[in-house]
Design a protein around this nucleic acid. Sequence first.
DNA 1: AGTGAAACTGAAAACTGTTTTCAGGATAGC
DNA 2: GCTATCCTGAAAACAGTTTTCAGTTTCACT
Lengths: 143, 143
Amino acid sequence: MKKNQMGEFARFIEEKGLKSTTQRDEIVNVFFTLKDHVSIEELHHKVQKKNPKIGYTTVYRTLKLLTESGLAHERQFGDGQARYEPVTTEEHHDHLICLRCGTILEFENKKIEKLQEDVAKQHGFEVKNHKLELYGYCKKCRK
Amino acid sequence: MKKNQMGEFARFIEEKGLKSTTQRDEIVNVFFTLKDHVSIEELHHKVQKKNPKIGYTTVYRTLKLLTESGLAHERQFGDGQARYEPVTTEEHHDHLICLRCGTILEFENKKIEKLQEDVAKQHGFEVKNHKLELYGYCKKCRK
DNA sequence: AGTGAAACTGAAAACTGTTTTCAGGATAGC
DNA sequence: GCTATCCTGAAAACAGTTTTCAGTTTCACT
């Protein structure tokens, strides 16, 4: 799966007439090993553990490329910074976000997706993507 | 309805031991005549048409107060700035956002709300609030 | 391998929207 | 009216994001 994603990224770079570089490969590699929803800064930190030479700017630019290529999604939870997640070939998923500890759980629900489509249709809308976030307290934090 | 909201704001100010001022009243007044999801800057502009002396900072602070009092909701759509909407006594609603023209439509769907609660329960979550946004093209823009 | 055009990199600067600071002004209880 | 407290608006500070720029690397073509 990871190889597959690396391959897709390489193809995207190729198609765009861009050049393949060590920095980008390292960043993309680290990104796809993560499960989390990382911010640019967090990813930069993790990447620097492997290669301290890589700068924030390059991480920033590579995340933009990943987003553009459809291999990553940019998300805006309430904390004032963009977070990125790898796009898998699996189903779209939504998020449960704990207001106290910040934990982010993912879920997926076909029935909700279906109802969303219905709503859109009623309004003459063509949905390209959606965002569903439930904010509250997780099992541990609700006490 | 507008009077009611003004009254609630006054009560909130009172309870908090804050002071009632012309500026705040003017800002709140303009805010509640709007249907849109305004940004701070937009509201500031509209307010200045009535009273050019009122500064950005005061609009900013008043919106915070409105949010705190529960009379406004702060929303983060994808455009990099916070938007605010008056909270009505009606049902919670969600948004359809056109990626081309920026139109924001509102909708409400009980079934989806119910399913959300179910999902949360499955994960041991206690939901405080949620956000559902469908991004796509509106009737006019899908052509 | 050598060359040159085009792309890439990283540090620093610029930008944008948000938040805080500060000095003067307004408010409300006495 | 006095006074403590809060409010206001301009400007400065801040944080995350984006652009700039000078030097470096990649790659297609010899």
